[in-house]
Every structure is written in C-alpha cells, then in structure tokens.
Design a protein around this nucleic acid. Structure first.
Lengths: 177, 177
DNA sequence: TAGCGTCCATCCAGTGATTGATGGGGAGCT
DNA sequence: AGCTCCCCATCAATCACTGGATGGACGCTA
C-alpha cells in the first residue's frame, strides 16, 4: 500500500474479477481466487469476510471502471455524448471482460441485495448523465433515448465485435445516421 | 402423451424452466425439479440423462417460445416489423420469466457448447428475419439496424417495464419517432 | 542490546452441508 | 414372468467456512 503495490484485498478482488470473467459467478471458487494470489484459501477469509462480500467488492471494482466513461463536464452536450459513446466503445474493445462481468452481476443482482445496491447506484449515475445530455440536446423524450442507449449497450455487452456498429447508431441526434 | 397431458420429460423441462427463472441456472437443483413434478430425484435421471441435457432442453423450450414472435410471412415489411415488435412487447409483458431465462442462457452459452448451439441457432433465425425486413424496407444499413434491435431487446430483458418504451423507438423507419 | 510479549498473516487439517449420480429392490400392469 | 416406472439408501466429490498452530515483525523495558 505504501508504494504502488496493491493491498492483498485488492489483489484478491482483481483475481476474483478475472475469474468471474473466465468462469462466471457460478464458477467462482474461493480456493482458486486465493491460489491466484498465492495464498491459502483460509487466509482469504482474513481479508474478505465472506464470498458474498468478495462478489460485492468485485461489483464495486467494475462500477469504478465503468465510471471512467463519464464525459468531462466542460464539454458541450453533443460533444459530451460523442465522447461518452466513444469511451464506451473503447472500453468494450480494450476490456471486454469488464462487460462480461457486468452481465454476470446484472443477473446476480436479482437475488443478491448487496450486489443489487452497487449495480443500481452505478446505473442511476449513468442514467442521470444520459438524460442530462439528451435534455440539453433538446430531445423530445430524453428518458426514452436514455433507456434505448442503456438497453443497447447492455445488449451488445457479450458481443464486443458488434459494439461499434450498435453504438454508432446511438450518437446521431436525428437518429438517421 | 396421448391426450393433452405432458410427458414426464416435458413436465421436468417446464419445471426446470420455472426454477431457472426463479433461482437462476446457478440455483438449479435436480432435486427441486423432481420434487416439483412429484417424483424422486433419482427417477429424474430416468427421463433426462444428465443435468446438462436438462439445461439444453430448457434452452430448446425457450427458443420455441421465442419463435412465436416471428411475423406472418404474408404481411408487407412495415406491418411485419410492427407485428414482430408488438408480439415481442406482448411476450415480455405476459411472460417476463422467459426473458430472464434467455438472459441466463446467453451467459451459460459462453461455456456450454450444447447450450450455445441452441442459442446460436435461435439467434441466427431471428437475425435473418430482421435483416430481411429492414432490407425490404430499403434501410441503408439493414445489418446495423438488426443488431440495434437485437441489442436493445436483450438489454431490456431484465426490466420488462421499460420494454415498451425501448421497443417503440425501434419500429419507426425514419427512426425519429 | 538483549529479552519478553503482542499482534498479524499464514498454513494445515477438518467441519457439516449439499451436490450430482448410482444400484438394489419393489409396486403395478400386461 | 416380464416390463415400466418409481423410491430408498447411499455414494464420492465438492462446497464455504472454522480451529489450532507456526513464525515473523514490531514495540516495550531494563
């Protein structure tokens, strides 16, 4: 923690994140997470109390990465929307596992309250940004446009190759391009 | 099988379907499936060889339900697209669990080849229908429009209340309504 | 500096619960 | 008798989690 190294806890969270991307939440095993970091499985419980807590921490980690795509506040709305969608497309291309993990978490959130809390908070922020942009752009129904963007992004999450094709259709204000 | 009753196997598949909708693929337990039908867990293996086979059967069942929304062939393209989207919205409203299950299956398909086969076949059919419609409508980029529709539908799967709002934006040819 | 005590991270072994799957044996029908 | 369908008992494997023990780092006191 003093230097650039990660804390044990952060190492574990990242290892769990990678494992979820590879094997799904269903295939997440504490033993493998611990082994990946090079510690015993029982020692893991010393840093993360329970498996549920680890999953929640993975959700926080994912939310933090997603927040990266928020457009800078100083940009005019049209440019901000473009910047946001570009950042999204970039992130999908460079870190496709992140979106695999969020897809897993969206399903888990239906049954795990602590995961749901994290997912809902992140999505509320995203929703606020988008409606703000579409309102500033003078869209007739900013809420509807917002939900279309969110749905489209969530829908292409598992097929990164198609993301640019889909995202390109969401940027144009007149929705004709 | 002779009369209107379902075969034991079909009963099991539907029970598994319902259980996946409720508890996720992760929470699918053969014991509960069997109990739901009123037979012993060991007897279940007499009708469905393995758990993987049961999941694949659930995928087939879901694909069959989804195929319901295919538009009638005799309709003109604009009306056919509207009919398809309406049928989709109707299905989301009346059977939201179906879309929960397909979301689960989409994730499972990444790791289970037999599930992937079913999911990909169903999606290929859907994709063909949509590109056909958009091509007939004279769209500039039918493939792009197709992927937008698929992504948007997949994205709202877990939030049935928002489905009408999102689907309404996909029907208009000029994409301004 | 030497010696003692405390704390923390780690490991090994084992807990009870639950999982998917199997085998032997019967009930009922033809 | 033979066949289909079914249940009971049980298997081996795996799960998340806990207990007991070891050892090193640090601070304190004389």
């Amino acid at each position: 923690m003093i230097d650039g190294e990660l804390s044990r806890r952060d190492q574990l969270v990242r290892a769990a994140f990678a494992l979820v991307a590879e094997a799904g939440l269903e295939g997440l095993r504490l033993r493998r997470v611990a082994a990946e970091v090079g510690i015993d499985q029982s020692t893991l419980h010393h840093h993360v109390a329970t498996k549920a807590a680890l999953v929640a921490a993975v959700a926080e980690h994912a939310a933090g990465l997603l927040a990266t795509t928020a457009p800078p506040a100083h940009l005019p709305p049209a440019a901000a929307l473009r910047a946001h969608l570009d950042a999204l497309a970039d992130l999908v291309a460079r870190r496709p596992e992140l979106f695999t993990v969020t897809a897993e978490l969206d399903l888990r959130a239906r049954r795990d309250p602590s995961v749901r809390a994290v997912v809902e908070r992140q999505e509320a922020g995203w929703r606020a940004v988008l409606t703000g942009l579409f309102t500033a752009l003078g869209e007739a129904d900013p809420a509807a446009r917002t939900e279309l963007v969110i749905a489209a992004v969530k829908g292409v999450r598992l097929v990164p190759d198609l993301a640019p094709l889909v995202l390109a259709q969401l940027g144009a204000t007149d929705r004709t391009g």
